[in-house]
Amino acid sequence: MATAKNARHHVVIGSGVSGSQAADTLREREPDARVTILTLSSLLFYNRYDLPKVFRGHRDWREFLAYPAEYYKDHRIEVRRCSRVAGVDGPRRTITLEHKEEIRFDTLLVASGGRGYLPEELAEFRPLMHPFASYTEAVTAASLVPDRGHVIMLGGDMIGLDLARTLIDTRHRVTLVAGAQTFWPHEVSDEERPGLIAALEKMGVEVIESHDAGGIATIEQGAKGLSARRVLFKDGTELHGDVVMPFFGLSPSVEFMLGSGTDIERGLLVNPALRTTCEGIYAAGDVCQIWSDAEKRYRFFYGWKNVRAMGDLAARNITGGDEPWVPAQDEKLHIGSDGKIQSPFWEYH
């Protein structure tokens, strides 16, 4: 890859919406620079909001890629897949990968996103659940659900509810075990909640309020010849389904940044220009908490449009810009005149 000898090396951790947008902007603004993406994924960037398509028969990963392989060749963006970052040394500007390779950077953008959060009381049932956060997870889950099969969705969250829309649309049965994260990341008041639940039921989702059933007692493999999974509530309520899928929102992937010299709360703390407390290191997307002057606190911004805008902004500020963060979309959840739930996070097509 031909890069000028003294060209800077911009490294992006994460190949999601935010990281991929950042790499594109970095390349555009600094044609001579070296741009490297480090990602855990074994695939090039795809939009995870597209994943419900697996239930519409799309199982070929090539249909999910946002850009073809040639894009990376043409744009001279190195993508290192299956690469787990073990640690970052901010002052030395060095990344160590898990396989003991060291990478020098001039600037670093952390866009590692978040992974599915799972409440502690459900952790022991993890092996019996099928998350839906990556292409491979999506295809694996979909392959276990037969035609008109039954999906038990725990939690909800807007990603899960989006999947529920597709499942209903493709004539699957969906039972939602609702709880605190059902409309994550929207903040929903107690007054709003019954209407939204009703809208879900109208959509065709069967809803059980976990709280009403006393909470989940256990999740088991179903009896032979019957269903694959059984969910038992403390009040004796039983659910039988083909898969159990957890959707409890995201928790930021930051553990590799411990000891890097950046300040971390739940996510990486950044100023409105998306700079961390360590020089040369920026953060964008679901991993960062941005200082809000108005609210006088660090807060997360979610949704595809926001996350993409953050990647773009961070890249601009890395390459000489100094603009503050302005949210790219509102975060209001409401029920439209047709009686259907409308979330700005679902507007990605």
């Binding site: 392989a69 190195e78 990968l97 898990e98 396989h99 003991k100 390779e101 990478i103």
Partner: peptide
Amino acid sequence: QGSIVRLPEGGHMSAHVGPG
């Protein structure tokens, strides 16, 4: 996937797997 020694940058196959 692993290595038993420290690697210089580009010393691991993951750095060379083409995007396609």
